[in-house]
Computed example of a mutant assay.
Amino acid sequence: MPINVLVVDDSIVFRTKLNLSLSKDPEIKVIGTAMDVEDALKKIKELKPDVVTLDIEMPNANGFELLKTVMPTNPLPIVVVSSLPANALDALSLGAVDFVKKPEAGVVDSTETFIAKLIEKIKIASKANVKHIERPSAVQPILAQNSSSAISRNLSFNSNTIIAIGASTGGTEAIINVVKDLPASTPPVLIVQHMPATFTKLYADRLNRICKMRAKEAEDFDRVLPGQIIVGAGGYQMTLKKDDNGYYIRSVIGEKVSGHSPSVNVLFDSVAELVGRNATAVILTGMGSDGASGITKIRRLGGYTIGQDKDSCVVYGMPMEAFKLGGIVKQLPLDMIAEDLFARLKNRII
């Protein structure tokens, strides 16, 4: 059965282009188009699409209003199409499954790449478990006040401890769920979230605003310090290195690995080699297998590994592949991962 898609965009030219382009794929059937939020809400009710592609920047009511209306009560997979990275991230926080950046006007290669990515995202979204997408209003503090107070008193940890996290589809909000309440004295957290350039910087800035730890996008030769979150930059491969002064980051333009740059496997492999038993790795929601072999190396070298469980994943792909390889010590629901990390840290105080 083809994936039934509703296209929502205020531009008749762009709606027509999407309709024609998406319809060329035998696995996709465009069952309707909508010019604005009111039209879209009506057609969602009438046509019951499997996936909606949603333009955010529309006059009058914008795409955010549709997300706010649909996702809390009748969630369905929505792929956002936006020219503004900040808007795409806001849409993800409201429950959108994924996003694609609008093509640059007049650039043929940009349009072709955009269509290919949108088709890929639609197919992934059609398998998404949207009822488990967390929204800010539903997220409660993960760590109880009394349970985190011990770490807040500036206790010292093994200086070799590193936490590495990898995610893809559904990962932006899942990562926030895991890290936002970790105390400021937590050992370094290195993150790879599959995301293009520009978006990773905005995402790191968002983490910095809402987390107790400091957060930044990776830059080449960044020192890796306690209390800091480093997010791999889009289009760059991030690896962990070590010298006489401690750990640092290499962030360099490189070929895609496991289909991605940054790649979770690249980060996890480097953590496995340098940190071994002092590493803690977490693999979260996402399509494909990136990170599965890397987290398995970490476990085989004595590190502690967590995989998000099927029921709480938006897409149970990467954690499933890691589990199948024997790379997971514990499979946990998303809302239990931060507490488990905290318990692990308490046991490693020196």
Rank of each mutant, 00 (worst) to 15 (best):
I31H: 05
I249D: 08
M195I: 00
L20D: 15
G32E: 12
P59V: 11
G303V: 04
L92C: 07
K180A: 03
G288C: 01
K24G: 08
K256C: 05
V192N: 06
D220T: 06
A125Q: 11
S152V: 09
I44R: 08
M320Y: 15
R300N: 14
L267V: 04
F99G: 10
E46Y: 14
K310H: 11
N347P: 02
A138N: 14
F14A: 12
G303I: 00
D220K: 04
S159D: 12
L240N: 09
G276P: 04
G291Q: 05
D340W: 09
V100E: 01
K242R: 12
R300C: 04
D269P: 00
A144C: 12
L284T: 08
L67Y: 01
K48F: 10
I249Q: 06
K180C: 09
E38N: 15
I151K: 01
L76Y: 01
T280G: 07
M238T: 00
R277I: 11
D244M: 12
F323M: 13
N158P: 07
M1H: 14
L274I: 09
Y316S: 08
P333K: 03
L22C: 03
K324S: 10
V81D: 01
D244S: 14
L6H: 10
L240R: 05
K346C: 05
V314N: 01
S270L: 02
D311S: 11
L118Y: 04
Y316H: 12
G234F: 07
I142S: 15
P196L: 02
R15K: 15
T172N: 03
I115E: 08
K256H: 02
I115H: 02
S261H: 03
A204C: 01
L22V: 04
M213R: 03
V70I: 13
S11H: 07
L22K: 01
F114E: 06
Y247L: 11
V81E: 03
S293G: 06
K242H: 08
I133H: 05
V315A: 07
L54K: 03
V79K: 07
I337G: 07
R250L: 14
V266R: 00
T296P: 03
S23Q: 09
H132G: 11
V266C: 08
A292Q: 05
K346S: 11
I175E: 11
N60C: 12
G106D: 04
T239W: 02
S168W: 00
F114A: 06
P319R: 13
L66G: 06
L345Y: 09
I122Q: 02
D50V: 09
K324A: 05
G232L: 01
Y304S: 08
G294R: 01
A138E: 11
G32P: 11
G95W: 10
K216I: 10
D36C: 11
N87M: 08
N265S: 13
N245T: 15
L94E: 01
K310C: 14
S149F: 13
P26E: 15
I176W: 03
D205I: 02
V70W: 10
V70Y: 07
S147C: 14
P26V: 13
V275N: 00
K346D: 04
S258L: 05
T169L: 10
K117S: 09
M320S: 15
P333G: 07
F157Y: 14
I295M: 05
L225T: 15
Q237E: 02
D90S: 10
R348I: 13
K102D: 06
N265W: 00
S149Q: 15
A343H: 15
V282T: 00
A86R: 15
A150G: 06
S126F: 03
V5W: 05
